[in-house]
Design a protein around this nucleic acid. Sequence first.
DNA 1: CCCATCTATTCCGTATATCGGAAGCTTTTG
DNA 2: CAAAAGCTTCCGATATACGGAATAGATGGG
Lengths: 295, 295
Amino acid sequence: MSADLRRRAKGSAGVESAGPENAGTDEAGSKSSLQRGLAILRLLASSNEAGARLTDISRALDLTPPTVHRLLKILVEEGMAEADKATKRYRLGIDLFGLAAQAGNPNNLRDICRPILLRLSATLRDTIFLLVRSGFDAVCLDRSEGPFPIRSFTGDIGGRVTLGVGQGSLAIMAFLHAEEREEVIRFNLPRMQGVGIIDEVYLRTEIARVRDFGYASRSTGLLPGMSGVAVPVLDRDGYAVAALSVGTISERLNEERLPVVVDILKRESAAISRQLNPFDPVLRRPAAILGGGPA
Amino acid sequence: MSADLRRRAKGSAGVESAGPENAGTDEAGSKSSLQRGLAILRLLASSNEAGARLTDISRALDLTPPTVHRLLKILVEEGMAEADKATKRYRLGIDLFGLAAQAGNPNNLRDICRPILLRLSATLRDTIFLLVRSGFDAVCLDRSEGPFPIRSFTGDIGGRVTLGVGQGSLAIMAFLHAEEREEVIRFNLPRMQGVGIIDEVYLRTEIARVRDFGYASRSTGLLPGMSGVAVPVLDRDGYAVAALSVGTISERLNEERLPVVVDILKRESAAISRQLNPFDPVLRRPAAILGGGPA
DNA sequence: CCCATCTATTCCGTATATCGGAAGCTTTTG
DNA sequence: CAAAAGCTTCCGATATACGGAATAGATGGG
């Protein structure tokens, strides 16, 4: 259902990657065993919750059963995968979970934003998303469901959207460095076919609008009847590091409520920015006032 | 600070592992490149948020720089690590995040419990933990901070505690299959030195008490002034699949509030159990009532 | 109940992918 | 500006990972 959101873009600009002048090799031949192992993990992640069997993996990744068996053994030993002895099925291991808690969390953004997301979803009674940029995509770092009314079960944590599609990623895009934004537009325009935006002029108009008003809100949602509003979270230099996004049914974002929501979002976004001190990593850590683990 | 909670037990009973009659080999010599790659990921996870440099990793894992370089390159290409070109430091990649969203999530436990955790932390105004068993440890699957008063910053998501230490893991332990519990006790007693429990008799008494009353609450917390209450989350057969745990300052768990908290926890735990249908995986998925991604 | 089929696991020779020394290159430090 | 430390590339030796084949185990059908 939401598996399509999880696909990742090939490149990874702004962070690293082999660079544009790729070595030109591979694209099929000679994978390292590390790559194979990671491929297995990804496959396990995308397979249903019952898990995948050895042969399934073998076939899907075009590896021989002995190879898969050996790799899986290592993954299990390392805690990255779990084998259900009864059903002979493999799932992702809990240790991955521990890894990821630390992952993709520059500036402790997630920790900082968590209480804010909670507050927002409680106040607005809608689902709130925290998105960050990752290459040419936006990634959902966290989300907080509203207390009742509407819940959306897509856009899971870790899910990816093409940067420029959807309000959150649009808000990020609008507040990137100019050159970066150009790069993203160039790369992403072809990827946006079939999701509403095919027109560069339109996209640029939208971006300008978002920059002017400080928020993104377009009624042409990805899904009929659904709408969203999003504001960027800016660093000290005024560039986007993330976006706060509200997803709800269109009726709930009418012209009288919209400005209120935007106002609240902007206030919270500013609060986050204030906690993002790019110069002192130490201060960024929320102080451990009182210890106490899972009691 | 909480890095010690992240260490994992050697074995992984109940799930898999090479079994007790281990091949007897290794334990230092000859690591596969997959293992090395995963070791790097773990190191990145445990290094501070600034990230680790190539040489740091090289030294820490006793690998030559060229090796680390090559592995890191692969990890970056695969999205499991990110290289900050400016500072020459490596961090965990966001893709890991996407993986883990699916990991260690049997029965969608986390999705099911998320709203309940939120409700609990809002109601009780304390921090709520969701713990599951992983081998001889309990792992923190999710947590939800209370709105104000006290927040504990240890016991992070993904953190591990020895099964039997702390109320949450005690609640799980008390409701395991008898043989499994024995195995856990045997394995964990030596590991419990210095965290309060050194006496098998005392531990067994505690477990019996928890079974009788249906909740765990011991004032001898890991940290002075802190206390916790926990109830198990049971499957259809009455065995523990998880625990709900409240961590707070001792004053807030006095004899008049404790029963109230326990009551609420039990109710929510029962609600979770009801959603755990081991026979129909399809029904377990929360239905996507309305779509709508990060808008 | 036994046989046929599919899957998981072990074994082992081969070949390839991995390793690490050495050297070039870049960045930081004094 | 020189020196040191760190990062990256190259390449030959070898350890390691691969996959075919055969075994053991599970599943299902006749």
